[in-house]
Design a protein around this nucleic acid. Structure first.
Lengths: 227, 227
DNA sequence: TAGGAGAATTGGTCTTACAAGTTTATCAGC
DNA sequence: GCTGATAAACTTGTAAGACCAATTCTCCTA
């Protein structure tokens, strides 16, 4: 049996979706019906549906027939969180991901400085103020994440938003540890001010520079904290 | 039954791995042994192993006992390729991903210009020459991918390598269509030369600029080709 | 030491069973 | 006739167990 049965079933419905004959929101046949249609056991049908679910092509809740849905970037990154937790468990993995985050955030800062509208600046300033007003660790970390997310949003690209959110989540531990370790909130918030000012002044190089320095300090502080 | 049986089994082995009592390469017990150990049926054991496999924690081949393995970035991005195909099926999705690729590649070009060693330059030049020597579409696309990958490798970060490779794969169609549509290989190869020269001269801004222009042209040509 | 036969093991599939949730149909009351 | 609650029917989630084929592992033999 070259082609597994569950693959055959999965491909069948995948094609129906790709070709548009099944549209988001449509209801799929019940498992028993699919069983008959393909002369398959329930395990095969369920494995096929499971595979489609992992691809974000359908959502299923207990008791109800599955419905077709469109994959989102958020959903895709959510798929990774399981593997990512183990990947970041190794020091090299964590270092590599911190490095990747830096490239992303510096690039986003650069873009923000290039393209930010007046409204964007206003929103960013609000996020900045919230961060500066933070007095406890929880609030500080949360507003810190929000500030960086606001910068990502300026790109108007959902991929960057989702990536930024996902990386914030994966590296949350780093944020907490490096914030908790000694440094005053003001110091970090001051770096945020520098980033904000550069974006506001549309000074692309200064924005990239400020973000670079900011992340380098945060990462450095994290490694000092855990050692 | 609050905690599902397969979750219990999965968590048990996940903890063994996280705590280091099971190390990469170690052999897991046979499925039947696990069944006895947890007083579970085979479906539960298989579902648990399946879940661990998705997290990249173990690899299993037919006939052999599963072995512990560490998740790799390549593996993680491979997980996404299914969802990604559907995501890119929508024009906005494709545009967003092209944009994301641009930010990555421009950032990598910048880094390459900052940090490239003599050896890196030599390897990059080799990739460039191979690309310039390409005479047919297949070879051209393949050497084009290799050139961009060589730039990514200069970062010395497996995450960027894997990301670059994954994006090349996901956007392969774009490369083929935009290469096939009218433009001479020389024109594109000339843009590669500009990028290479900038990296070689450690001119960071020129490298970013050249990569930006290069990608903009390629993307532009793709959209003209498909419309 | 090399090769091959047989045992061990997993992968894939099917069947059956029950629990838990959702949808649909029915019916009483207004 | 319409509305709302209740029950029946349906559907998925979880689980156990059985079978065969394909692959790997082990050990014995030459």
């Amino acid at each position: 049996m070259a082609r597994k049965k569950y693959q055959e079933i999965a491909e069948h419905f995948e094609l129906l979706v790709l070709s548009g004959r099944l549209r988001p929101g449509d209801r799929l046949p019940a498992e028993r019906q699919i069983m008959e249609e393909f002369d398959a056991g329930r395990s095969s049908v369920r494995e096929a549906l499971f595979s489609l679910q992992r691809q974000g092509l359908l959502t299923s809740r207990p008791g109800a027939v599955p419905r077709v849905s469109t994959p989102t970037v958020d959903g895709m990154f959510a798929e990774l969180s399981g593997s990512m937790r183990h990947y970041l468990n190794r020091p090299e993995g964590l270092r590599e991901m911190q490095d990747a985050r830096a490239l992303l955030e510096i690039g986003l800062a650069r873009r923000a400085a290039q393209t930010a509208s007046g409204d964007d600046i206003k929103k960013l300033e609000k996020a900045l103020d919230a961060n500066r007003a933070a007095r406890d660790l929880d609030t500080f970390v949360q507003t810190d994440v929000a500030f960086h997310l606001a910068i990502a949003r300026i790109s108007r690209n959902p991929v960057f938003e989702a990536l930024n959110a996902a990386l914030s989540d994966w590296l949350k531990d780093q944020r907490v540890k490096s914030s908790a370790s000694g440094a005053s909130f003001e110091e970090v918030a001051d770096q945020h001010v520098k980033i904000f000012e550069a974006i506001k002044n549309k000074d692309v190089e200064a924005a990239a520079e400020a973000m670079d320095r900011h992340l380098a300090i945060v990462v450095d502080r994290y490694w000092k904290a855990v050692m």
